[in-house]
Design a protein around this nucleic acid. Structure first.
Lengths: 176, 176
DNA sequence: ACTTACATGTAACGAGTTACATGATTGC
DNA sequence: GCAATCATGTAACTCGTTACATGTAAGT
């Protein structure tokens, strides 16, 4: 029994409106990019499986050869189960912190370069989130839940920047 | 060519001192648990591969049948290359935020339960980090780099808590 | 003796990405 | 007609975990 994680994401996107596999991916890329990702190689097999299980149904879309998927009654019930279940704890794998931990092998300067790069990524993230927030606040269809996920990204990015500044100060005080 | 990520972690741990596969895992579990994890199923094949590539060598350990691995010259050089390389960007997969984004399917109360659970995990993390910090500050072998990784965890956990409080306030203001 | 901790290894599985192959529709 | 976008699907591969099988050494 494969990933309930991907099942959850696909079913949830379909709960908004019926969509093709392609459109599901677009939505995930556009709106969930801050905290989720799926590839086509994952989405299409998942849709086949969900259809076989009766959790989604297909309408014939406007184009020939494109399949418009919609959530079935069973699918909606299953989705609620998945949403209620506590998220699976992710195994941590932070490449930056691994490198910092062994920083004495690299030295303070090279280490600071890595931290600075991470800081820039966080700054960029903050800019992206500002755009997303403006869009969400202008969009009447945007829910308050959406804004909460944007806020989560902002908190995380600001924390990353604050830590980076602290780390850079510390690193610059260390001998060459 | 498999995971340079796991190679990096294994080589880095061996840079501290020679160790058995078992001891490498102990070190990762004890000291890197906040931002890294490896399983035996990953470590042993990796050690075989690194040995075949001449990046590590084995001494016969104190016990019969246990292999003590140590970094070779080539291994140390390769380790420095891996450390210098920018960390691979991780694909985001945050089960909590996925659920929050689709919060209107679940309702504010159930959603708040999930957020509260996440808040507790962050609080627990903060307590664990306080213990780790105390240990690191008492340990003369602990580097300042180690403390930096602890600080990173603290920043992240505090940000998670701050967001959770904000989210809980917002959720409690929403109709049932 | 017995239990606990140390130690190694592999097979089966799960999850996910990338690259490729293919074709339909739309806008210019 | 042609390019860009929309659309589907699969095969090969990478990465990683879990569970199992096996055995040694140390402490009590």
């Amino acid at each position: 029994m494969p990933s309930s994680q991907t099942d959850l994401a696909v079913l949830a996107v379909l709960s908004i409106r019926p969509a093709t596999g392609y459109a599901i991916r677009e939505t995930i890329t556009a709106d969930l990019s801050g905290f989720w990702s799926e590839s086509f190689g994952q989405i299409y097999p998942t849709l086949s499986r969900l259809k076989a299980a009766g959790l989604v149904e297909t309408e014939t879309g406007s184009r020939t050869g494109s399949a418009l998927y919609r959530l079935s009654g069973d699918g909606r019930a299953h989705l609620l189960d998945l949403l209620t279940a506590p998220p699976a704890p992710a195994k941590p794998r932070n490449g930056l912190l691994l490198r910092v931990f062994f920083g004495d092998l690299l030295g303070p300067q090279a280490c600071a370069d890595l931290v600075r790069a991470a800081r820039e990524r966080a700054e960029q993230q903050l800019r992206d989130l500002a755009v997303a927030r403006a869009e969400a606040e202008a969009d009447p269809a945007a829910t308050r839940y959406w804004l909460l996920t944007i806020s989560a990204g902002e908190h995380a990015a600001r924390a990353a920047i604050a830590w980076a500044d602290e780390a850079l100060a510390e690193l610059s005080s260390m001998p060459g």
